[in-house]
């Protein structure tokens, strides 16, 4: 997808008032066009790698190669976790790909519980790929659907900008405790991807914000979370098990994530996106 194409489409959408920018002067809206377009490229890049990586992951499952499938689980998800800030733009796919057993009254016993976490559950808890074929096929279909939707998707600025904070809210509310990847304990991979995704948005819109103290604070909080995570990184760029995370570090992460959520919650307002 070319940058110019996206830029034209976005400018058009903004000028028409699509995406909730009505209240803004066109001048302010236009300023948002470039970072939004950049962000769309970022998303498209990651959905494209998501498709590639998922193909390999699904291949391993179909080959019955449990160990290979396990090793590909976290790196594959990582692509998705990076674009999670805007998951509400494709909520149906998010539910299908990334819901958790708790989202179903019957938990793991519910056949509708599918997606990444169903596969994770079977790989780690049952140590097999048996019975996973239909879930793997569905995952791949969803991923391909997501990738094809992205190019046509309107990116409302308040959703993108708001997404940076929303993801921190999610981490604070249901991830920091290690609920997300409870079978594989690969939560730290997700954390990093979530921070990356949220920081990307902040970095893109930062030039439009006229408050150095605020910027410095957000940057230092991001730096702090990466510093904590660095202690858990493995040589191949992955992460050790969530169980290795000390209470003290979990507390620091939790405090920083909440602080980031608090700070980033002002981002929309600061950009005039009420």
């Amino acid at each position: 997808m070319s940058l110019t194409r996206i830029l034209c489409a976005l400018t058009f959408a903004l000028l028409l008032g699509a995406g909730g920018a009505q209240a803004q002067s066109n001048q302010a809206s236009l300023e948002l066009v470039e970072p939004l377009a950049e962000y769309k490229l970022y998303v498209a890049e990651h959905t494209a790698s998501l498709v590639e990586d998922t193909k390999e992951f699904v291949g391993a499952i179909k080959d019955g190669d449990v160990e290979k499938a396990k090793s590909l689980f976290a790196p594959t998800r990582r692509n998705y976790e990076k674009i999670e800030p805007i998951a509400e733009l494709f909520a149906d796919l998010d539910v299908s790909m990334d819901s958790r057993a708790d989202d179903y009254e019957k938990g793991e016993a519910d056949p509708n519980f599918g997606g990444f976490h169903r596969i994770e559950y079977v790989l780690w808890e049952k140590n097999t790929t048996e019975g996973l074929d239909k879930y793997a096929d569905k995952l791949l279909a969803d991923v391909i659907e997501l990738d094809s939707r992205v190019s046509e998707l309107t990116f409302p600025p308040e959703i993108v900008v708001g997404g940076a904070a929303v993801l921190m809210e999610e981490v604070a509310a249901t991830k920091i405790s290690g609920e997300e990847d409870r079978y594989s304990r690969t939560d730290l991979w997700d954390f990093e991807a979530n921070f990356d995704g949220s920081r990307k948005i902040f970095e893109l819109f930062k030039p439009l914000i006229d408050d150095e103290a605020f910027i410095a604070k957000v940057e230092s909080n991001f730096a702090d979370v990466y510093e904590v995570l660095a202690d858990y990184q493995t040589e191949d760029g992955g992460f050790v098990s969530y169980e290795k995370l000390t209470d003290m570090d979990r507390r620091v992460l939790s405090a920083k994530v909440n602080t980031l959520a608090e700070e980033l919650s002002t981002l929309r307002g600061r950009l005039g996106l009420g």
Binding site: N221, R251, S254, A255, K256, N258, T259, A261, E262
Partner: peptide, 9 residues
């Protein structure tokens, strides 16, 4: 909770 997130968990 809102005013002291960086210190209190």
């Amino acid at each position: 909770v809102k005013n002291l997130p960086e210190f209190l968990v």
